[in-house]
């Protein structure tokens, strides 16, 4: 399989990349880790005339603490997140989520910025970034920056709020509150590793009362979503497994689940409920430690 011909540019700085994007406009496609885009190009489902490769831009690959959040450069690889001690300490759900992506080779190369921009409905990060109430920082070809809330970022199947003249530069993940536990659970399609359903749950406890709870779900709907029904049913409630089980029944409420040869809509909705329950229980167990 050979992609259609294209012009290739490997800028060394973000500024250079933005100039190239300004010059080539909608003919250009930005290449991050390439673990989705390159296969799409080989299948000729994507035939960009110009590729702007971000892999040489060292300034976009970092994970650092900034105030009350962790700033992750768009070109941080999945392996960087998976092994980051800073994230394990401040937002442990992201390393856990990253460890579920694809395989070692994909995690060595794939990036968080690329994954979010691609917005595959079965990608892992969107569930965790939504549950974390993360933000996505982007910059346009005029150098104008904006910060988009994760809930506003995912628009539809493979569609985000990112404009064609914008590049993601950073993902911001708020540090967990004290007594907070989290878990990412996934049922995957075995050959591809993509999520049939992935659930990210974050729970903050005060004694045994659920102070805050956030649930992000991927793989089920055309875009990852927050299970607000579950969250509202649990906030302020005293923890007991029965309450969790009942609330988890709302995990696919108002959702029109995807269907394909791997899983029908009913099964995906079922997975959302079961994995939500298990993820919540695991998160609560971890919050108690």
């Amino acid at each position: 399989m050979f992609p259609a011909p294209f012009e290739y540019y490997a800028p060394k700085t973000l500024q250079e990349a933005l100039s190239l994007l300004a010059q080539h406009g909608e003919n250009a496609k930005v290449l991050a880790g390439g673990q989705s885009l390159v296969p799409l190009m080989k299948l000729r489902l994507s035939t960009p005339a110009v590729i702007i490769d971000l892999n040489g831009i060292a300034e976009l690959r970092y994970i650092r603490e900034e105030g009350n959040y962790v700033a992750i450069g768009a070109m941080a690889r999945h392996y960087d997140l998976e092994t980051s001690d800073l994230l394990k300490r401040l937002c442990p759900i992201l390393p856990e989520c990253a460890s579920h992506i694809g395989d070692v080779q994909v995690r060595n190369r794939g990036t968080i910025g690329g994954s979010l921009a691609h917005a595959d409905p079965a990608a892992d990060y969107p569930a965790a970034v939504l549950a974390c109430e993360g933000e996505i920082k982007v910059v346009d070809t005029d150098g104008k920056e904006r910060v988009i809330k994760a809930t506003d970022f995912f628009v539809d199947l493979f569609t985000t709020a990112l404009q064609p003249n914008e590049i993601i530069t950073e993902i911001r993940i708020p540090a967990f509150a004290p007594k907070t536990g989290s878990a990412y659970l996934k049922m995957e399609q075995l050959a591809s590793g993509y999520a049939l359903c992935g659930v990210a749950a974050i729970v903050s406890l005060d004694d045994s009362v659920i102070q805050d709870v956030r649930v992000g779900i991927t793989g089920v709907a055309p875009k990852a979503y927050r299970a607000t029904g579950v969250e509202n049913a649990l906030k302020g409630q005293a923890f007991n497994p029965k309450t969790i089980e009942q609330a988890s029944e709302l995990a696919a409420d108002g959702i029109n689940p995807l269907e394909d040869i791997h899983a029908d809509a009913e099964y995906r909705a079922h997975l959302a409920k079961v994995l939500t329950k298990r993820a919540l229980l695991k998160a609560i167990e971890r919050a108690k430690v």
Partner: peptide, 12 residues
Amino acid sequence: EAVKSCMLFAVQ
């Protein structure tokens, strides 16, 4: 680092 060489371009 292990990578899949069918998902990279030689120019990269």
